[in-house]
Design a protein around this nucleic acid. Structure first.
Length: 259
DNA sequence: ATGGTCGTGGGACGA
């Protein structure tokens, strides 16, 4: 089973680029972030015609997550638990039923800039809530994953110029510590389980010719429970997607599971 | 320190 995460930066502007990537990459499941659309405006028929089930959790203009799946989706839930006052659309879950059932969580973690400040406080509080949900997932002792745009550069090797990010909400020590506390619960960063070393990125800013200079960062991650990590057979980043017409500033990251 | 580029929606704001 091929499962991908892709921050598309707006479904309206990205419908062609997303469709082209789906036709080539053929993911069984695609977790999308920043659909920037309400549920009613998401072009669900376009992807249903390609054979995908479509579940969205959107809002007007900003944020928004979705799941596309060739396999049936069950028990879909929307919103990260833990704060009834938080109405930002950043979390969606479903169970994908293939040979094995896998609980799949798609997330768009808050950017948090400028830091320090209220937006950074919101990011760290969101990560605290994520940790609680993660602990519950682990307790089930079943194959599960949390994938999406984490807006976290885990280590220096995950940035072309780490020194440029030192005060940024994506790389500040509190951010990396919170991410490490999360993974230390027992999750596997699928990419680092398969591929070592610097130079692997999932985001390049639109500004300053960042892509041409390969001035990127790795902030899109798939974290696996031990039971899911046992099924991992491959992982990759579709970097070439960044060089197409009207690209997102992120590219897809994918895994293959023996499921 | 500033400005550089996108998407959404039709003006700023978020990234």
């Amino acid at each position: 089973m091929k499962i991908a995460t892709f921050n598309i930066n707006g479904i309206k502007a990205r419908i062609q680029a997303l469709s082209d990537w789906i036709d080539e990459a053929n993911p069984d499941v695609a977790l999308l972030q920043e659909i920037k659309s309400v549920d009613e405006a998401f072009p669900r028929e376009h992807f249903e015609d390609k054979g995908y089930a479509v579940e969205t959790h959107g809002q007007k203009s900003f944020n928004g997550v979705a799941i596309l799946s060739r396999l049936p989706l069950e028990d879909v839930t929307r919103g990260l638990p833990g704060d009834d006052t938080d109405h930002q659309a950043r979390w969606i879950e479903a169970t994908v039923v293939g040979e094995k059932a896998i609980r799949i969580c798609g997330l768009y973690l808050p950017n948090g800039n400028p830091a320090p400040g209220p937006k950074y406080d919101y990011k760290l509080a969101w990560m605290d809530r994520l940790k609680i949900r993660a602990q519950t997932l682990l307790k089930a002792e079943e194959p599960a994953l949390m994938a999406g745009d984490y807006n976290v550069i885990p280590q220096a090797e995950d940035a072309a110029r780490p020194e440029a990010w030192e005060t940024d909400a994506l790389y500040r020590p509190e951010t990396r510590n919170a991410f490490r506390r999360l993974t230390n619960l027992g999750f596997t960063d699928a990419f680092r389980a398969r591929i070592q070393g610097p130079g692997h990125y999932s985001f390049w800013d639109y500004q300053r010719n960042a892509r041409d200079r390969n001035d990127g960062i790795r902030i899109d991650h798939l974290l696996l429970t031990p039971q899911a990590a046992d099924l991992l057979t491959a992982c990759g980043i579709d970097s070439a997607t960044r060089d197409r017409e009207k690209p997102s500033d992120h590219v897809p990251v994918w895994i293959e599971l023996d499921a």
